[in-house]
Design a protein around this nucleic acid. Structure first.
Lengths: 201, 201
DNA sequence: GCAGTTTTGGACTTGACAGTCCATTTTCGG
DNA sequence: CCGAAAATGGACTGTCAAGTCCAAAACTGC
């Protein structure tokens, strides 16, 4: 890839964002390169100029974008799990986020397109899970420091279980449209950390 | 659809099973109708004869098949959650099942292909989740009857959370290849029901 | 303002795959 | 057996989308 002019960088970005938007609206399967071009008023040669790997490379770039969004959308709550009310605020944020997203999960869709095949695709999700879990675990440790959670608890393991609950809750929501499972997983998961039942709402 | 001859029924079944196998091995995206035909030594006209809706109808039929497998593969353990050792046996069974399946989840793949678009597709998953959760909840209630679980616990809600944990654990395994999250979700989820830590292995 | 590099437009190639059609063979009930 | 209904083979079509290519335009540094 040659050096990028300011104009070039802008075009590349336009294509990327356009692809992400198109996928969010219509799903991966129904998104063709021509759709993206039409939406972004660019041409084939440009797309392949900035994404020499073609569709696959573009999809991977979109996956990275979406993975970042997932964590950003949970901030600042996720980064500050330092009191029980803060935990419940995070819970509300997560539920609200996915309720708004509806039954279309761009990341999951892109992933099952790229399949376990692509090496880079796995890396994106693995890294997302890693940092997500790390932030939750940090919150657990913080609460342990504060004496709010039993120090005997394995913070990483607890975070892993809670994360799994969230993932599953979202997955189920994709199919059923209901956030009931997500809510149950979060409520019970957090309560299990030692928060008792939900305190002051 | 006209009446099915015995031979006809056999052919239909061969196509269905062949499609399922092909998808399990190569994923949905990489599975074409011609692949299925080649593998099952059938012809185009047969496929469209038995699945007039073409690819989409076939995919949906495969989804139903796989959904059934999911529950069957957990029996008899899932149907007999009547003691703590039984719960842990179920846990082991689930983990073993998904470890064996590896990083390819036919059902999830088929679903994100059919998207939230198809009405029938959602129904398949929704029904799967419903009965899965019902079986878990039945186990919880059984344990409550036996005095092993606090009767104040909401069985359905607990089952929902546990199910979400399992789903998420599996989903994460698809990407990372590790069953760590699945194990954590099951261990902590079951322990939370009141089993304390894992008893006699 | 010149030379080299980057950017752009868009026509063209290629391949693949879903779905159609019809003629032929097999099965089934009576 | 016999006629109707079902099953089968496989060639054919149409479409659609990914990716290639080259020549023209714009931009950059000097």
């Amino acid at each position: 890839m040659p050096a990028l002019t300011r104009k070039g960088a802008a075009t590349r970005e336009r294509i990327l964002q356009g692809a992400a938007a198109q996928i969010r609206e219509h799903g991966v399967v129904a998104t063709t390169l021509d759709d993206v071009l039409a939406r972004t008023t660019t041409s084939k040669s440009q797309l392949f100029h900035y994404f020499p790997g073609g569709r696959e490379e573009l999809l991977l770039a979109v996956a990275r974008l979406e993975a970042d969004r997932v964590l950003e959308d949970q901030q600042p709550q996720l980064g500050d799990l330092s009191s029980w009310p803060a935990w419940w605020r995070w819970r509300d944020r997560v539920i609200e986020r996915y309720r708004a997203q509806g039954t279309l999960c761009p990341l999951n869709a892109v992933m099952s397109q790229l399949g376990g095949v692509t090496p880079g695709a796995q890396a994106v999700v693995t890294e997302l899970m890693r940092s997500w879990q790390a932030e939750i675990a940090a919150g657990v440790r913080h609460m342990q420091q504060a004496g709010e959670i039993d120090r005997a608890l394995d913070a990483d393991r607890a975070a892993a279980a809670l994360l799994a609950g969230v993932q599953g809750g979202v997955l189920i929501q994709m199919s059923t449209g209901s956030t009931a499972h997500l809510e149950a997983a979060l409520d019970i998961g957090i309560a299990h950390l030692g928060a008792g039942d939900r305190g002051p709402a």
